[in-house]
Design a binder for these strands. Structure first.
Lengths: 217, 217
DNA sequence: CGACGGGTTGAGCTACCTCAACCCTGGTGG
DNA sequence: CCACCAGGGTTGAGGTAGCTCAACCCGTCG
């Protein structure tokens, strides 16, 4: 954990906490953006829609992640709780006042935003170039790496989101996601335990799969 | 043009200019990131690769755009000149020194990075949910809107990138891109003039196409 | 215990890919 | 100034990954 990040983390300690039930929106796309959020626990889906309802999830935010880090006048995405979620909220003006006292805070936020940008570009790579198997492998490995960074188990992966969420994230359909999970299970790469969690049995093969250097029949 | 942005623009006036020929790389993914760039003229493609050479272009940068705005230790993408390109370059340490004097500069950079994030997320929407026709319409409209923002003609669109670049940007193949251009031409939406430019004849239909509210046979 | 929502599986379809031939254009050199 | 060439772009024919639609399964909750 870099100094920048820890400074950002301390900043939330005295902020009010807001709660959202599963399915509730924290903000809608094009809403005025008044606050910066840090997720205490739970999970958000961040998504875009087309006119006919097609949905692209552009990211998930879990405990420790920020939302609204762009500081724009209006929200660029919809933000919706996947499960009951609590988040620290700080008004943008409050944050900007803190920045005046401590300019490093803005650098920390900038770093967080850079990470989000890298994730969005990696997602474009996944959707645009990877096959359904490569994409799902990338998704699972991504969650494992996030767990590792947070000091959680990188073998047991919790999946708060539904199959539809995963499909709308990877640009696939629910059927293809389900079939691909089954295929991974049959190849001994993962174990599907409870409905919303899995065990990784062979991360090395998943990593080769996501890079396109391994294939399964 | 917001004050933040104009402040960012003035900052480059005294910076050294570097030149790159078509196909030359300004930086490679994972290179140490030493500088911040502003494109004086020309164009860059920003891209990721998979192990077997599949390429996802995650953005194009044209005159007035920044590169390296993430200020990370290492470059997150490859950056390659599409055509002969000149760019202002400023070392990160120089930029950070300027920021100490004028903290607003960092806010301006943050805003630019937010714009990049929004573009990357919109790209994910395009690749993940839009059909080839909707995707190409979104691409053309995106270029037209950029031109409008820069005070250029939004009817005459210059396409410095090849069909392969467009395909690798939209997650399609060169054949599909070419066929879709032809279809748009046959429907009177665009005129294909020179090889690397086009005229928009019916932007309203293109906009409805990209939102999924109109179809062409 | 029944109903419901999410997940899995199967059968058939189609949008887009693959591969290959052809065309066009701009650049080069005779 | 023209002939040639190379590389990008277009078009066609056939194949296939992943979609659609529908049936079924299973765990949860009233």
């Amino acid at each position: 954990m870099t100094p920048l990040r820890s400074r950002l983390q301390n900043m939330w300690m005295c902020c009010p906490i807001r709660q959202f039930g599963a399915g509730q929106h924290v903000f809608h796309s094009n809403d005025e953006q008044t606050h910066l959020y840090s997720i205490a626990n739970g999970a958000l889906r961040l998504y875009h829609n087309l006119a006919d309802g097609r949905r692209q999830i552009v990211g998930f935010a879990f405990a420790g992640d920020l939302a609204g880090a762009d500081l724009q006048a209006r929200h660029q995405t919809n933000g919706q709780a996947i499960v009951p979620t609590r988040l620290y909220s700080m008004s943008k003006s409050m944050f900007l006042r803190l920045v005046v006292e401590n300019p490093k805070l803005l650098l920390g936020l900038h770093e967080a935003l850079s990470t989000e940008l890298a994730a969005a570009q990696e997602l474009a790579l996944t959707i645009g170039q990877r096959s359904s198997e490569e994409a799902l492998a990338a998704f699972i490995v991504g969650l494992a790496r996030r767990n590792a960074r947070q000091g959680l188990s990188c073998a047991v992966i919790s999946l708060p989101m539904s199959r539809r969420d995963i499909a709308d994230y990877l640009g696939l359909t629910i059927g293809t996601v389900s079939r691909t999970f089954t295929k991974f299970k049959n190849h001994g790469l993962i174990e599907l335990t409870k409905r919303r969690s899995l065990h990784i049995l062979d991360i090395a093969t998943l990593e080769r799969l996501m890079e396109g250097t391994e294939w399964i029949r």
